[in-house]
Design a protein around this nucleic acid. Structure first.
Ligand SMILES: [Mn+2]
Ligand SMILES: [Mn+2]
Ligand SMILES: [Mn+2]
Ligand SMILES: [Mn+2]
Lengths: 151, 151
DNA sequence: CGTCAAAGTTTGCCTAGGCTACAAATCCTC
DNA sequence: GAGGATTTGTAGCCTAGGCAAACTTTGACG
């Protein structure tokens, strides 16, 4: 067998610890799904339907890119969509969308409570939201509570 | 000319505003460079040299992946490296490394000041650090100052 | 109802960033 | 100064996620 016995993924005295870089790559693997699902839910709530063209405009990508991504989400059982028709979330998709929306809201409120200007907070939240452990999210919520909804 | 006049990248009444999703994609395009450069500087400081095998172990990837990434950093003028020799930062590379390290330290201290456990903070910081506007970074620094270096 | 603009899809291309398998160079160690 | 383990590099493969261009479908409306 040509495979080496010991891989070099982790130092030995480190084998039980999470590698932060590995965690970040995992976060990024989920990021696109989360953003799409949250956005689709949002569009349905606010405009009645989720169309390729609107998703593309919001995300700043071309429609072809959205079509391809939707195909993947369909494969993963997170959305349903018939050709030339708009997009719907499965129950599984709805769960992820809700969680994503919740994270997003928490980060946004947290940054604002911290004193960051609304518009900047909205930009930064979009990236940060995918990299938060439950403990960090909890700390952010605690902080929001403690703040007297400042002026 | 087959190209459509109006692209759909931005809604019209929105054209001067930054699209958060576009910003996140830009952040991610810089992320790998920042992490590599920070790590290379770290290894040089702590062990005397930056070797492919050690970079791979730290990042949790295979050596072949590192070799390819280093080739890209070389192309971009951020590192120098002769075949079978260890890796060095250019001045440009050092600048980015220092900035990355600074961001990293700020986020880490901030999360700890917020009450997040050290180990969790170290994991989350690795992802968050790439998504921070100057204003948010400044707010974090303010918060760190205000905290009495709590027990 | 026919036309045509808007929306959606398909195809083919590209880069980044992973991987394995194998080849080559380096460098301990005796 | 061999020889073998370690390290580095190369080649080829894969997926994700972008793009443009061309094609197809839908549906509004005159
Ligand atoms: Mn996001
Ligand atoms: Mn990220
Ligand atoms: Mn990082
Ligand atoms: Mn870092």
């Amino acid at each position: 067998m040509p495979l080496q016995e010991k891989d070099t993924y982790q130092e030995k005295d480190d084998s039980s610890r999470i590698n932060p870089f590995v965690r970040v790559r995992e976060d990024h693997a989920n990021e696109l799904s989360e953003d799409y699902l949250e956005l689709i839910e949002d569009l349905i709530d606010r405009t009645g339907e989720a169309r390729t063209v609107d998703i593309a405009a919001k995300l700043g990508v071309r429609q072809a890119t959205v079509t391809k991504a939707i195909a993947r989400l369909k494969r993963e059982g997170l959305v349903t969509a018939a050709p030339y028709r708009s997009i719907f979330l499965t129950n599984e998709g709805k769960k992820i969308a809700s969680r994503a929306r919740e994270h997003h809201r928490t980060v946004l409120e947290f940054l604002i409570a911290l004193g960051v200007q609304q518009e900047v907070a909205e930009i930064d939240a979009e990236g940060i939201e995918h990299h938060l452990s439950p403990a960090t999210l909890a700390a952010m919520q605690r902080f929001i509570q403690q703040q007297p909804a400042a002026a």
